[in-house]
Write a protein that binds this DNA or RNA. Sequence first.
DNA 1: CATGAATGAGGGTTCATTCAT
DNA 2: CATGAATGAACCCTCATTCAT
Lengths: 245, 245, 245, 245
Amino acid sequence: MDTAPPAPPSSPSPWLPFESRRRARDEKREAVLRAAVQLFLEQGYHRVTLNEVADRLNITKPALYNYFRGKDEILFECWSMGAELVDGVITEINAGGGSGLAKLRKLVHAYAELMATDFGASLVRFDLRDLAERNAGVARAAKRRIDATFRRYIAAGIADGSIRPCDPKLAAFAIAGSLNWIGHWYRREGKLSPTAIADEFTVRLTDGLAAEVRLQTTKKTPRAPQGRNSGRKATGKKRTGGETG
Amino acid sequence: MDTAPPAPPSSPSPWLPFESRRRARDEKREAVLRAAVQLFLEQGYHRVTLNEVADRLNITKPALYNYFRGKDEILFECWSMGAELVDGVITEINAGGGSGLAKLRKLVHAYAELMATDFGASLVRFDLRDLAERNAGVARAAKRRIDATFRRYIAAGIADGSIRPCDPKLAAFAIAGSLNWIGHWYRREGKLSPTAIADEFTVRLTDGLAAEVRLQTTKKTPRAPQGRNSGRKATGKKRTGGETG
Amino acid sequence: MDTAPPAPPSSPSPWLPFESRRRARDEKREAVLRAAVQLFLEQGYHRVTLNEVADRLNITKPALYNYFRGKDEILFECWSMGAELVDGVITEINAGGGSGLAKLRKLVHAYAELMATDFGASLVRFDLRDLAERNAGVARAAKRRIDATFRRYIAAGIADGSIRPCDPKLAAFAIAGSLNWIGHWYRREGKLSPTAIADEFTVRLTDGLAAEVRLQTTKKTPRAPQGRNSGRKATGKKRTGGETG
Amino acid sequence: MDTAPPAPPSSPSPWLPFESRRRARDEKREAVLRAAVQLFLEQGYHRVTLNEVADRLNITKPALYNYFRGKDEILFECWSMGAELVDGVITEINAGGGSGLAKLRKLVHAYAELMATDFGASLVRFDLRDLAERNAGVARAAKRRIDATFRRYIAAGIADGSIRPCDPKLAAFAIAGSLNWIGHWYRREGKLSPTAIADEFTVRLTDGLAAEVRLQTTKKTPRAPQGRNSGRKATGKKRTGGETG
DNA sequence: CATGAATGAGGGTTCATTCAT
DNA sequence: CATGAATGAACCCTCATTCAT
């Protein structure tokens, strides 16, 4: 990832300026993306002007063109940041072991947490039709990969007996729908922490699929079938910021 | 679709011209909405120009202003059509009887089917920030009502024992998320019929909540007590047109 | 040309509004072109803003888009007006008779006069690279046709003996060069009338090619070989507004 | 192309570094001009960005400002290079002897050849309105000088009897027009060599003016007195790359 | 009522130029 | 000197909306 070898601290290598320039550049690029993704989520892509993005960074509009080719490329890069996060998660899960169900649960948990971040929410709240055709294609491909991963874990779970037989496609749709929706209703100011949401959704979305044991009944209350999902705090009436639809 | 039945020619009531005028007007209004909602869904609100809407109706742009105050009002009326459909469903369910779980299942089924219609999808694919503040308020209130209904049915089910104890809010989020997402991935040209989707989602989304019996019949539970949809199975590889995210 | 048959004066035909609308539209279109071509010639295409064009017509910039698709289309239409003038001239000459030399002289004369008009000068002073590729192709083709006509007349003259043998291509280049240059140096405020220029250039550019008689010695001074091109006024030192280069 | 010959290593004159510095600087300046004039001719001044100029030289945009005050000054210097070439030609001709006609022929020949060079074409293909007013004035004056030279030679020819009486101004326009147009249609890749063009144009443009003998040798005048270019004939169908207009 | 025409507001983009390093 | 970054000024174009006919 980082190309430059660590400069010997004692030598004022002429490379350093380059490196630092490049780092500064990358940092600024990311700062633009952070500002942009926030505004895009807050107001919606079409209502955000590049002037607003620039203003928030205390620069001027054309300065943005030093880092991006245009507004839609900024949108794409925001989206990509989210996609990379998901890809990282998937790579890690694939590297680990476990049953299909176990992998699915890991994915659900991590994905739910991601949906509570700006770049994660980008994945589901940005309209791909706003992208240049070329980038839209890349994005569609990435979406397909993620979707395929959900289905693959489910299919693997069915194969290894950890998941009860079902249609992997529709099951993936149902699970991913719930998860994606988090990106629409989650508010940072709400009372539910991303982790709490992720914990709860992991149980709720995968329990119906599990072949044997239900997570919902935790070990602590092994025979309290109606025992309100003990341990996992009921959040009651606390505002989380959104509605279902 | 069905045009007004020809007025009985024997009653030259002076009211009729009025009536027929108004009806003609309403029909045109609806025609505008049908054209608009399609375009809005196809291309996204901001990419659709009023000229396109007018062209599809073989009228001219300013003519639209005879029926609507502006573009955002058209968007709102499209949205409202969807909201009315949901309200109708809810009213009907409320009028009927049944346990909390039964009501929830009815709602899920009907809502899923609605998500496969243009006006239904409007509910979840249009951005409320595109509305005038006044209309946005109305829409937000409607969304809250729908969300509250989901929660109420769940809470009622918990109270009457048909649903296992859980957090109604998060459960509603999970269910509504899956349902809303249908509005994003469903394609009319796909292989899955709206009813099939609704059936499957009714099972999948409520089964985990059911206190006693599971609708989902698998080989492990050969005796599906209520028999409904029993045996429903994987739909295989048929394209439905979308991905999870 | 005019499509509408003359309306019977006694009948207020419902067609008239249409016709008059269309006429008004065409008139405005042409007014735009006249204003634009002047500005383009005065200041150069890239220095002229659509606001200036609009201002000169007492309308606003976007109003121009009712008549043209964009700035470059206005440029193209100006150019086309000139091309049509030339085409008309050529058509007329072709319809008439005469030797190759006679036709060439007619063309030179008419072309020279055209170069003194705004639309005529457009032909040689606008940069085809400013056009959309599609229009540029059309323009290039038209240029080729005009060039071919020059060469054809010369070749015909050689064939019929009215023009002395020479390379039609280079001869055409030489003649057309002189003529085109008029479009660069001619100033309306100058002392030379377009007709005077055309007369003079007709003699000067074709006399060297003529096989037999030299026009330069007019009938009035049949044997005054060195007689200063009598009859055709020497313009002396009068300012014409430009230089050679 | 040819870089400065290495300074004789034996003379460590303190001036040399200076000299070589200055020479290096001048060479770079010229390199910029060569790159710029090509781009300006290829694409047109307004479509060329300084970045493109810099890229072609493998330097960066601001570096150009070490050599020129701005884009329009680069344009002016390109133009000036061409003007200096013409001035050189004129100076040389003036230094030599000969009749007015002889001088005119020399000028036509040299000017035609110049039109086939980049800097020569600059003279007629760049728009003086793109220059700063100060430079535009200089350029206009230079153009006037060149024009005046054409007229002076013609007038001298009339006076010394080598040229038949005519209006020097219009004759100059006609000749210069043909010559200038070369700068518009000449293509290096074409079949006609600059010298061939110059030869042909020298004959064609001055023959009509000559008092006595015609350079142009046709079958009718088998005895070409001065023999120069005699027999030169039609170049056939070879592409030269341009049209007349 | 419907239309053609016109408008005002605004956004994205480009680019020559400058400045600190 | 050369560079990367930043800027200011413009310009084209789009489109919802209005108005006279």
